[in-house]
Amino acid sequence: MSIEIPVDKWPGTVNTVTLGATEADGGTRAKVVTIGGEQSLPFMHFETEMPHSPVIALEMTPSRTDDWSQILLDAWGDVVEDPARWAAAIEAAGADVIVVTFGLTDPAGDPITPDYAVSTVKAVLEASGLPLVVLGPGQADVDNELIVPVADSTKGERLVLGLCEDGNYRTIVASAMANDHLVVGRTPMDVNLAKQLNILMTDMGLPLDRIVMDPTTGGLGYGIEYGYSVMERLRLAALQGDAMTQLPMLVTPGYEAWRTKEAKVGEGVPETWGDWADRGVHWETLTAVSLVEAGADVVVLRHPESLKRVREAIDELMTAAPA
């Protein structure tokens, strides 16, 4: 019996975006990372070759680990005290990309200053050859205050700057345009809002090959199904040819998973939740793997063990069935 396998031929292609720049291209990165370019749904190798594998980023929050789960702090040890060592450890752990997220204040309660942000990013650039994503705390005025000087002082590195949000994208986009960087735009789990922000950002003149989108997701048990479906819908729209959805997707399962009670809290929880440390890593891994299935191009994680597991899953998914 011969079966005709249904093959979807899509008119659209996801944009190809390169994170980071080597010396030859005006930056200092030892390697760059290229994502996107899909012409089919994730891992449908029997339809079209998937040109770039989804990549894994590890996140660091310099001077701001007070809200990190003890499990994470135990896994990283004292490198979290020093951004440069932390970055080196992230690279050694096998990440493709480093995400530096700044908070509003340091543990002493003093505001993170632009100078601190600049010197931290420079230290990270020194300590690691990986491409970088640099995010502000997500408060419009502070984001602008921190991200603009970082952009100015790292011209040409093709950093991914964020977060660009509906009410606050112009300044970050402008500073990215002026300094040859990229941006990431975040919208709250809604296809149309994501499209709208992409339109607004490209309207400013930023080319599409310098934007990635974060459609936002929820952690496992905390709304992952919304993020999952929004991502599937965005990718379907992209493949159908809607240019404003053809951006590679970056999502933050690490952040979402590790702020759930299940991952963050070890005491006073039901016995049926099992071992804390294992549970936390499972929580992050399962969140990430599901989102990879939904079309994520970059997953941002926090635990080095999760990175190993998600890496193995991605590698397997990237391997086509023997013909």
Binding site: L220, G221, G223, I224, E225, Y228, E262, E271, T272, W273, G274, D275, W276, D278, R279, H282, W283, L286, S290
Partner: peptide, 15 residues
């Protein structure tokens, strides 16, 4: 093991 089964059951519930 509970820490293994619990997240799997939650994912199923969500999806």
């Amino acid at each position: 093991a509970p820490e293994f089964v619990y997240p799997i059951l939650v994912l199923r519930e969500n999806i």
